[in-house]
């Protein structure tokens, strides 16, 4: 028997982690952001429970500023009907009219994403939330456990994480605690793309290069995705051939100029890339350690 390839090994490990969640938690949920990692996670979720339907619902925390193509994909996944898709919006934030264009990245993300996620977890009483975070994404994530425990206030304390040995995961919850589970911990961005190609997984078309209307702002190329986008003095919309490496709220996510309009070309571009993945995310650049701070406050 030949030994497993690198992707097979990662796939088996992720399925193993998901099955631990099925068996050990009362009410787990998968956080579904519609990005490439989410699509891989959903694919693995279906594999882990096959032939049963996934015993875990998906939760999309909608900031109302996601790219329209992301919402279209969400509707297609919901229509397939094998897995329940829940959508949560922070209505309080909507009433306050929170917008990334008016209030900036930090406040918008805190209210519409971090606070909204906490609301949803409390509302449904979820005791475990499966997420697509990878250790290679960002420095503070390199220290994250596969099973990461949060206090009743959803806070992460890097000094109080449980040691994780072998695959003997300790999944016990103390009263009020909940778990975040990261089955893709050991994947890299390149692994994700190679797996998407191998398995034929559908992703949002924005990952592929195409002519799109963009505005150069704060050193990033922002896609004009709908009529809410307002131009500042001196800005103008131009058509450029761009694609996205990560997807978030459209006014906060920078595109890259690229010719990669197929999976093969994306992977080829990645292999030659000299720039890290989250570089296009405006939210990460407040301070050098801002991701660590956001995680302590409950950001996913």
């Amino acid at each position: 028997m030949p030994s497993l390839g690198h992707l097979d090994e990662l796939e088996a490990e992720s399925i193993h982690i998901l099955r631990e969640v099925f068996a050990c938690f009362r009410r787990p949920v998968m956080l579904y952001s519609l990005g490439k990692d989410s699509q891989v996670l959903l694919h693995l979720l279906r594999k882990a429970s096959f032939p049963a339907k996934p015993p875990v619902p998906l939760l999309h925390v909608d900031t109302l500023w996601k790219f329209r193509e992301m919402i279209a994909l969400r509707e297609r996944v919901a229509a397939r009907g094998d897995v329940e898709v829940l959508v949560h919006v922070n209505e309080d934030g909507v009433r306050r009219g929170i917008s990334p264009l008016l209030h900036g990245a930090a406040l918008h993300t805190d209210v519409m994403k971090t606070q909204a996620l906490k609301q949803a977890l409390d509302k449904y009483g979820f005791d475990a939330a499966i997420g697509g975070a990878r250790r290679d994404e960002e420095k503070s994530r390199a220290k994250e456990r596969v099973f990461s425990f949060r206090s009743a206030q959803h806070r992460w304390d890097p000094r109080r994480q449980r040691p994780e040995l072998w695959r003997a995961y300790n999944t016990r919850l103390s009263p009020g605690e909940n778990a975040r589970v990261f089955p893709l911990s050991n994947w890299t961005e390149l692994d994700v793309w190679r797996y998407i190609r191998r398995e034929g997984i559908e992703v949002v078309p924005l990952y592929f290069a195409a002519e799109r209307p963009v505005v150069a702002r704060d050193g990033a190329l922002i896609l004009v995705d709908d009529g809410r986008f307002t131009l500042r003095e001196g800005e103008r919309v131009e058509m450029r051939r761009v694609r996205f490496r990560t997807l978030g709220c459209y006014p906060l996510t920078g595109a890259i100029e690229s010719e990669a309009d197929t999976l093969d070309k994306i992977i080829d571009e990645m292999e030659r890339s000299r720039v890290s993945e989250r570089q296009g995310r405006l939210i990460d650049h407040d301070a050098s350690s801002s991701m660590e701070k956001k995680k302590q406050e409950g950001y996913f």
């Binding site: 250790r135 290679d136 420095k139 390199a142 220290k143 890097p158 050991n186």
Partner: peptide, 29 residues
Amino acid sequence: TDGLDAEREQGITIDVAWRHFHTPRRHFI
């Protein structure tokens, strides 16, 4: 590789960090 704020202040590594890199021959964790 010294990732967390708390570590930079103390100048030590306080926890296990997992890193990835690769060469054409091998993936490393």
